[in-house]
Design a protein around this nucleic acid. Structure first.
Lengths: 167, 167
DNA sequence: GTCAGTGCAAACTTTTTGCAACTAC
DNA sequence: GTAGTTGCAAAAAGTTTGCACTGAC
């Protein structure tokens, strides 16, 4: 499915959501939706704000971004992550389910997919709870930090050896 | 394993962590660790702050709580969740791995365990990443909200029927 | 005795709210 | 025309920082 086709469908879904819940169709709301569905991966309010400022004919305030994002979450068109102090969002329609690897040292975040895992999670039977979606965050250390740490340990050992020789 | 035994072990682990990284052993740090390991489930900085204010002989500032919590995370003695705007924490030593069900309507959060799922996640092979722990959040609607919604839908239908009759 | 650690308050960041102006219905 | 929506600025909430004092080493 192409990007423009996806955009058309999500606009349709959003239109129906707004109508069903008595909200109005405004240019701002659809401009925000369009922009979000042009972004690959995660984004935060601040980056979205500056993208709206730069690329659109009309400006959108932060308050409107926050308001619209609540609607989009409820319409199941985006999902929210709170990995850092500021919230991150990503589009959820027609996007492959994926999981996040987060480095506890440098904070970097990488997506990965695992079909077996998705099946396992999808098959869970939950009592008294209707699942809509899920997020799996795996914490640990990325290769970069791991190597940096080993290098630093090596350097420390060498310099302490040198100090001892100097005594 | 009893609570006091767990507390002794985590104090030992924390002592070793502090020594290994050149931090000092302070009364505050160990009072905070002790308090945290008396709490069952999740807590946030604010509730911890007031518990420290009320129950201990000496007060601990918020700044010290934030500082100490960073150390405890790095020592692998607590883990951090950012489900709401404020961060939540929970002790991680000797605690059964569990997952969270989060209601997107009322925000309530319930723990559950699923051994098969834990095994599936534990068995994932990750390239260039050393897993330390993970968090699985399942979003959806809790039973309470689900029933409330159905009741409200029913009421709305009835009242609109009454309105039509009144015309 | 020295310097890491602490408490306090101020600063900073992210999000929410109040209100006047605007606009979709 | 009316009531929902927006932009702006101010407020609120959570976290971090600067500085003088304290206490672990």
């Amino acid at each position: 499915m192409g990007t423009s086709e996806v955009k058309d469908i999500v606009k349709q879904i959003f239109t129906e959501y707004l109508k069903a819940n008595g909200y109005r169709k405004t240019l701002e709301r659809f401009a925000i939706l369009d922009k979000i569905y042009s972004i690959e991966g995660c984004f935060d309010i601040d980056s979205l704000y500056f993208q709206m400022m730069n690329h659109e004919k009309f400006r959108v305030s932060r308050a409107t971004l926050y308001n619209t994002i609540i609607l989009l979450i409820n319409a199941r068109l985006i999902i929210k992550h709170q990995l850092t102090h500021s919230s991150q969002y990503e589009r959820s329609y027609n996007r492959e389910t994926h999981h996040h690897l987060i480095c506890t040292q440098c904070g970097s975040s990488v997506e990965f997919s695992n079909e077996m895992l998705q099946r396992a999670i999808g098959n869970i039977r939950l009592n008294r709870f209707r699942m809509s979606h899920y997020s799996l965050y795996i914490y640990g250390m990325c290769n970069k930090c791991n190597r940096r740490n080993k290098r630093e340990q090596r350097n420390n050992k060498e310099s302490s050896n040198n100090n001892n020789k100097g005594k």
